[in-house]
């Protein structure tokens, strides 16, 4: 287990280097002169020169890369818009997104796994059809539509939850459920498929033949085996959420990372965009690392590899 952890952590290093290079090169891969791109169309040549100097764009690429990375950490890399250090701009937004994602993935896992198990156990009955129908609805439904609908019902008509913004716990409920329900639909489908496969296995028959109650066999002996593909999907969903759920954040005015990046793209605030992309990539890699380790916790056969 410890060896596995060390090996996976070592593997993360080249991946992180790769994504940092890519996000750095973003500015240089866009056709044209980076200084002119940053300055915007119709900028005066003097302004372009100022930017060229400020961003050190005449230096060799590797020097620029190093100053990009160090600037990220020591605060020298600044947002063009606010002139604040990029890191100061991004981190609070990321914390907001993290809170929302954590709540959503919790909603999604609880609903998705529960309904997936029920559908699998009651396969080919009306209960199964109902659950799978809802799941199809959940997958097909535009996320902003559900958000607006929830907002109408709970904020406008019932007036029990705030329609948006960031504040106490009640502010997270509507966007969290909006984001969570869409992903719960996918989790439910995966859980059902995986459970169906496991329920046909010999060891389930063995467990039943020892006289353990069916409920215990399903929730303990079948579920642990069925969880691996489910954990994969939940991990991916969590990664996407952490990358910023732009639609949900926009509908509910949630000040998250996704909106910051979109705004920065419109404002041509390239340092923020680059840092944002790098952060999302890092988070995605770390989430996947967590998923890998969770595999090993669930399945002893993976621990030894």
């Amino acid at each position: 287990m410890k060896n596995l952890l060390i090996r996976r952590l070592l593997l993360v290093i080249p991946i992180l280097f790769g994504v940092s290079v890519l996000s750095f090169l973003l500015l240089h891969l866009i056709p044209g002169d980076p200084a002119r791109i940053i300055a915007g169309i119709g900028a005066a040549p003097e302004d372009v020169e100022v930017i060229r100097k400020e961003f050190n764009l005449d230096a060799p690429l590797y020097v620029q890369y190093i100053s990009f990375i160090t600037g990220l950490f020591n605060g020298n890399l600044k947002s063009i818009n606010t002139q604040d250090a990029v890191i100061k701009e991004i981190i609070p937004r990321f914390v907001n997104t993290f809170q929302l994602s954590l709540f959503s993935i919790f909603v999604s896992s609880i609903i998705g796994i529960t309904f997936g198990i029920i559908a699998a156990v009651k396969r080919n009955t009306w209960i199964d059809n109902l659950v799978m129908g809802f799941s199809l609805f959940g997958i097909s439904m535009p996320i902003f539509w559900l958000g607006i609908l929830l907002m109408l019902v709970f904020s406008l008509y019932l007036n029990i939850l705030p329609p948006g913004g960031k504040g106490g716990f009640q502010h997270i409920i509507l966007p969290g459920i909006t984001l969570g329900v869409a992903s719960a639909a996918i989790v439910a489908r995966m859980t059902r498929a995986s459970m169906l496969q496991v329920l046909n296995q010999d060891y389930i028959r063995t467990a039943l033949s020892t006289g353990l109650p069916k409920g215990k066999v399903i929730v303990k002996y079948a579920l642990k085996n069925a969880l691996i593909p489910v954990v994969t999907v939940v991990g991916l969903q969590f990664g996407y959420m952490l990358g910023g759920a732009v639609l949900t954040e926009s509908v509910f005015g949630w000040p998250g990372l996704g909106r910051l990046i979109v705004d920065s793209i419109f404002n041509r605030d390239y340092p923020v965009v680059q840092a944002g992309i790098l952060l999302i990539a890092v988070v995605f890699v770390l989430v996947n690392l967590g998923v890998d380790l969770l595999y090993a916790v669930l399945d002893p056969r993976i621990r030894r590899r």
Partner: peptide, 10 residues
Amino acid sequence: EPMTALNPVF
């Protein structure tokens, strides 16, 4: 099949 009759993850 003693290979598959026991639960692999317990």
